[in-house]
Nucleic acid binder design. Structure first.
Length: 873
RNA sequence: GUGCGUGUAGCUCAGUGGGAGAGCACCACCUUGACACGGUGGGGGUCGUAGGUUCAAUCCCUACCACGCACACCA
């Protein structure tokens, strides 16, 4: 007789804080995350989307970066040449904004500091605070190859940026031009179309009358932006609009300065909206710009980069110098006074907002640099259409396609200091020199323009320009490195759908153009994280959850499991529930205690991965091994399909509801003790490996405590289903046993028996002893053998009954008979339907027959039992 | 306006052309060789509404309603 001997080494409650930091430091110091290119093995490469250097971990990283870590760990265990390549993005606008704020606190203006001083500060700041998010990633258990960490402003990556710029320029795909751009008056820079949001806002629609000079007629237009009237160069109406047909070609006066402008016809005008006539301000509105181009209209700018009215190009009357909203108010009041304001109505419409600063975008005409997109987009579309690039879920492919089909040129110059300065120089005569280095620029200047006096373009490149090169720039491109040879293209890109345009499409275009292959064959789009009510998480709403806080309370493993279990393959959002992390913490505790039980088995554990002879395996052994086999196949399938939610659910079920609830309990019965140590050790070792990609820490801790081979579970092999014996018949028999146990437990409960009060079990003689013992164990029953019943084990188990008070049994039998009669009736109705027999699939009909037969037999039995009790009454 | 997604138990969500599921919450009982961050049992849903296809619809189709998202030059 052995007494329980729970290992004193292991606390009763799992404490992630005591494990996670220690293991991570060990992994990193041991170089387990690092990998060298190895053409002999299949590559599994993920380029980490570089977080902003200003960034902090948020729940979105849970849903996008956890899957990357999971897949990298999974493929490493599969023996692939797996590497996850990390890095940071210099995040021009965001970083510059942070710095400007910091400087303001010290009372320093950006311009006073000067360009070089500012950049020095930015570098200093990046080095000091920029690593924060990487530390947080370590806390979350993310294991990228830190030795390969890159920064978009690194010298190598910057050289790649310059090379790409120069090549695109020489190919005519980058050009400089005066175009209408999106100006962010707060960030004091241009932003690309992809960085502009359209937000519904309450505003006004003002109807303004434009009179003819002689007063013989007038035209009224509707506008939401009266301040732009100063730059009007035409009034447009639809060519088919009869109301205005006679006025086309005539002139009216813009009432603020009484400047004459023509009335023109353009089909872009909707006659049904407003008055059917529209003012045209080509320099300050995208539609008007196009109309202006079609009609060759003058395009005077009336607003400067501070969003103030400016008379530099045209007479703006008394409004010069006014801020745009002041000007609007003044103009409205003047128009009202002069009788030109006909009508004023509240109006809700979409306003263009800078994604970054939240400021209302001002469309301005400005000399900027652009990338010609159509020639780049075409191959990127082709790659998608012929299947070289696919999206998971598929529907996001259509988003990508639509965007590329309608793509417009990309404004890439930014009026910021922090970023890659354009490799562009100008001679005093205004000649443009584009070169990879200043030396090269000087040589060209000397040779072609006979000058050495050069001014470099002060602008920097859109951050996404360097991010677009990420998949190959981090591998050393344009050098022909082993990394580039082995690891480009990568295997999958994982990101959120909000940056398909900003980033994914651009990587595909530039990757195809410069390396000749799509940078990744598959894009997995992970869901965005919202709060439990479906609201976006934000600081202002106060509903933001800090992952670090969750890790502190539940552990990194629980955080990862908690969020993965909420992921659904087709879902576009997660309504995050913190309780899922708590459940996962409980799950880990379950694992911990099952491990304590296992380690405390009095007989001890054998060498790793040694199973008893097949003939010695008990029914429970065969069942759990079969379940393990199926779980391994399922986990591999689900990881391969990016179905992380179901993967998490699958291993959860196996570990908790099968291994702990049934198998571990079964090992407490005498007939199962001989083989249990080996089988449990084997199964648990496999289970930890299956769970490791999701919960790296606890699995390592447990695996190391179990008999194992190797230094770390990280490089242990992924479980192989062929190493696990399968026995369907035994698995089915055990499942029948489970159903019987549940039935008897229900009876106990109805009898009001306390869990420890024994119940007499009436077990047919043809139920084998080991099964009978399990029944007794699971139901706290004492066995009483009865006559053999039924031909199969299932039938015999179906006949197992507990000895209960007569009234109770009668009641149960009655209820059971009612249920069964309903089932029989339903089956008979179905099978009595000739249409069903004739048209339904044969196997469906057969199954239905078998079901009906089964119900009939059960019903007979129950009715017989009922009758028998009746006789005894 | 166009396109996409979602409506299933009180909550968050799985799922299937042929007997409605999980977790949490709730109720009852329980310190059973590890675990109360635990065990066992239980109650609870006309599967958004209305049609259609089908022998059979929660699942497929159509319309509508509600919510969310993306795109869009209606000033």
């Amino acid at each position: 007789m052995t007494t329980p001997n729970v290992s004193n080494d292991l606390a009763k409650t799992y404490d992630p804080a005591a494990v996670e930091g220690r293991l991570y430091a060990h992994w990193e110091a041991s170089g387990f995350f690092h990998e060298e290119p190895d053409p002999a093995r299949p590559p599994f490469i993920i380029a980490m989307p570089p977080p902003n250097v200003t960034g902090r971990a948020h729940l979105g990283h849970g849903s996008t970066y956890t899957p990357m870590d999971v897949l990298t760990r999974y493929h490493r265990m599969l023996g692939d040449n797996a590497d996850w390549l990390p890095g940071l993005d210099h995040a021009a606008i965001a970083t510059e904004a942070v710095l400007v704020r910091e400087l303001a606190k010290e009372g320093i203006a950006r311009d006073a500091l000067g360009r070089q001083g500012f950049i020095d500060r930015a570098w200093e700041w990046s080095r000091t605070y920029g690593g924060t998010i990487n530390e947080q990633f370590r806390t979350l258990g993310f294991g990228p190859d830190w030795q390969r960490e890159r920064f978009t402003m690194d010298e190598g990556l910057s050289a790649a940026v310059r090379k790409v710029f120069v090549e695109l320029y020489r190919e005519g795909l980058i050009y400089r031009g005066k175009r209408l751009i999106n100006w962010d008056p707060k960030g004091k820079t241009t932003v690309s179309d992809a960085e502009v949001d359209h937000v519904e806002r309450d505003a006004h629609l003002w109807h303004v009358r434009y009179p003819a000079k002689d007063g013989s007629f007038s035209i009224t237009v509707a506008t939401t932006r009266p301040e732009t009237m100063l730059g009007d160069t035409a009034i447009a109406v639809h060519p088919d609009d009869e109301r205005y047909a006679t006025l086309i070609g005539k002139h009216v006066c813009m009432p603020l300065t009484m400047r004459e402008i023509p009335v023109i016809a353009d089909s872009a005008v909707e006659s049904g909206f407003g008055t059917g006539a529209v003012k045209v301000t080509p320099a300050h509105d995208p539609t008007d710009y196009e109309i202006g181009q079609r009609h060759d209209l003058p395009m005077p700018s009336i607003m400067d980069f501070d969003a103030r009215i400016s008379g530099a190009e045209i007479d703006v009357g008394a409004y010069g110098g006014l801020e745009r909203y002041e000007a609007r108010a003044r103009i409205i009041s003047d128009l009202r006074a002069s009788g030109h304001l006909v009508k004023e109505e509240p109006y809700r419409h979409a306003v263009a907002i800078s994604e970054r600063s939240g400021e209302v975008i001002e469309p301005l005409l400005s000399l900027q640099w652009f990338v010609k997109m159509k020639p780049l987009a075409e191959p990127a579309l082709q790659a998608y259409r012929d299947g070289r690039l696919r999206f998971v879920p598929e529907r996001y492919g259509r988003t990508y396609e639509t965007w590329l089909e309608n793509i417009r040129d990309w404004n890439i110059s930014r009026q910021l200091w922090w970023g890659h300065q354009l490799p562009v120089w100008y001679t005093p005569a205004g000649d443009v020199i584009v070169a990879e280095t200043e030396e090269e620029a000087r040589e060209t200047a000397k040779r072609r323009f006979d000058t050495l006096e050069l001014t470099r373009d002060p602008d920097t490149l859109d951050t996404w320009f360097s991010s677009g090169l990420w998949p190959f720039s981090i591998l050393g491109w344009p050098e022909k490195t082993p990394e580039l040879a082995c690891w480009y293209p990568s295997q999958v890109l994982i990101t959120g759908w909000e940056i398909i345009f900003l980033w994914v499409a651009r990587m595909v275009m530039l990757g195809l153009h410069f390396v000749g292959q799509v940078p990744f064959p598959t894009v997995f789009i992970s869901p965005l994280v919202f709060d439990a009510q479906g609201r976006k998480m934000s600081k202002s709403l106060g509903n933001a959850i800090d992952p670090m806080d969750l890790v502190g309370r539940f552990g990194a493993d629980a955080f990862r499991m908690g969020i993965l279990r909420q992921m659904r393959l087709e879902g576009q959002e997660i309504r995050f529930q913190e309780s899922r992390c708590e459940e996962a913490r409980n799950f880990n505790n379950k694992i911990w205690n099952a491990t304590r039980y296992l380690l405390a088995l009095p007989e001890g554990l054998p060498r790793a991965m040694t199973l008893p002879k097949p003939s010695e395996l008990t029914l429970a052994d065969r069942w759990i091994l079969t379940r393990l086999h199926d779980t391994i196949e399922e986990m591999s399938r689900l990881f391969d399909a990016f179905d992380f939610g179901n993967a998490a659910e699958t291993i959860w079920r196996f570990v908790w509801y099968e291994f702990c609830d049934w198998y571990l309990e079964a090992t407490k019965a005498e007939p199962n003790r001989a083989t249990r140590a080996a089988v449990m050790s084997f199964v648990w070792n496999n289970a930890m490996r299956l769970l490791h990609p999701i919960a790296p820490f606890i699995t390592e801790e447990v695996w190391l405590a179990l008999p194992h081979d190797g230094a770390t579970i990280m490089t242990a092999t992924w479980p192989d289903p062929f190493e696990v014996p399968v026995e369907r018949a035994a698995a089915d028999a055990f499942a029948a046993l489970q159903r019987t146990v549940e039935r008897v437990r229900n009876l106990r409960s109805e009898m009001g028996l306390a869990p420890k009060q024994p119940l007499t079990l009436l077990v047919p003689g043809n139920v084998p002893n080991d099964l009978a013992a399990l029944l007794a164990l699971f139901t706290v029953g004492t066995l009483e053998r009865t006559a053999e019943t039924g031909a199969s084990l299932e039938e015999a188990l179906g006949a197992v009954e507990g000895r209960a008070p007569l009234e109770l049994l009668v009641e149960r039998y009655r209820k059971e008979a009612i249920r069964l009669r309903a089932e029989v009736e339903r089956g008979e109705r179905k099978l009595g339907n000739e249409q069903f027999i004739a048209k339904a699939a044969p196997d469906v009909v057969t199954k239905e027959r078998e079901k009906l037969d089964g119900y009939r037999i059960e019903l007979q039995k129950v009715e017989a039992a009922l009758a028998a009790t009746g006789e005894r009454v």
